[in-house]
């Protein structure tokens, strides 16, 4: 480092900078350590493979449930890595630093949820159409699968982040988060899988998509506030 660097006062990052830094950090943490986004995809693939093994590979049985099962797998795969979303930072004190930093705790929760969406939801949205195809969904529906999975993934990320915040400091975090969060996952699963069902019988998917988006917006508003309250509770 030259003298000139040392003389200059470091500028505070500002809101946009702080957001970017945190987002990058979260993605690093989520994707680092083996496999990156492929881990969630791998889990999804396993679930997809188990269904025919459990229920028989007859396309006449698999076909009708292909969309629904894809959404079930999406919901379950989205639960992955939720436990560590806040816990890691809580354990090493990073959460306290974040709470004191530029970003409000609500913003931190929001950004962590967004990072969860990018880290897990995005790869899953790309894998889901392939899985649905494998289960016998008509190829014409695959773009819709990707779209609904992408939007639904955001809903899962926000609600999941809320669950992770609530379960901070609790015993058996992973299972607890699942039990708390899965009932709240019902609306996006219903709307998303419902959209596929509608499209399958040549009905308009607009309403279903609109409802799915509405849910995501709703979750995006609630999760930061409720999640921040939960984090403060766990810290203090």
């Amino acid at each position: 480092m030259s003298r000139r660097d040392l003389d200059q006062e470091p500028r505070p990052p500002g809101l946009r900078g702080a957001t970017r830094v945190l987002l990058e950090r979260e993605l690093d943490l989520a994707w680092g350590g083996g496999g990156g986004p492929l881990l969630a995809c791998g889990f999804f693939a396993c679930l997809t493979a188990i269904l025919p093994l459990a229920a028989g590979g007859d396309p006449r049985t698999l076909g009708p449930v292909a969309g629904g099962v894809a959404w079930l797998a999406l919901a379950l795969a989205s639960l992955l890595s939720l436990e560590r979303l806040f816990e890691r930072d809580m354990e090493d004190g990073g959460l306290d630093l974040l709470a004191l930093g530029h970003l409000s705790l609500e913003q931190v929760v929001l950004i962590k949820a967004l990072a969860q969406w990018v880290a897990v939801g995005l790869p899953l949205a790309l894998t889901a159409p392939v899985a649905a195809l494998a289960l016998g969904l008509p190829a014409s529906l695959t773009p819709l699968v990707a779209l609904t999975a992408l939007i639904g993934g955001a809903g899962f990320a926000f609600t999941g982040a809320l669950g992770a915040a609530l379960a901070l400091g609790a015993k058996r975090g992973g299972l607890l988060i699942a039990v708390v969060v899965l009932p709240l996952f019902i609306p996006p699963v219903v709307f998303g899988a419902g959209a596929l069902e509608r499209a399958g019988s040549d009905q308009p998917v607009g309403p279903a998509l609109a409802l799915l988006c509405a849910y995501v917006l709703f979750a995006a508003v609630i999760a930061p506030f409720a999640g921040a309250a939960a984090v403060r509770n766990a810290q203090g």
Binding site: L162, V180, P183, L184, I186, V190, F191, A226, A230, A234
Partner: peptide, 27 residues
């Protein structure tokens, strides 16, 4: 802490309940 966390969940649940009910009816 358990009380406060549960209160958050209780309130979130109450708000979500009509939505879930609606989604089940829609389904």
């Amino acid at each position: 802490k358990a009380g406060r966390a549960a209160a958050v969940l209780g309130l979130v649940g109450l708000i979500n309940l009509p939505i879930v009910k609606f989604s089940v009816d829609w389904w």
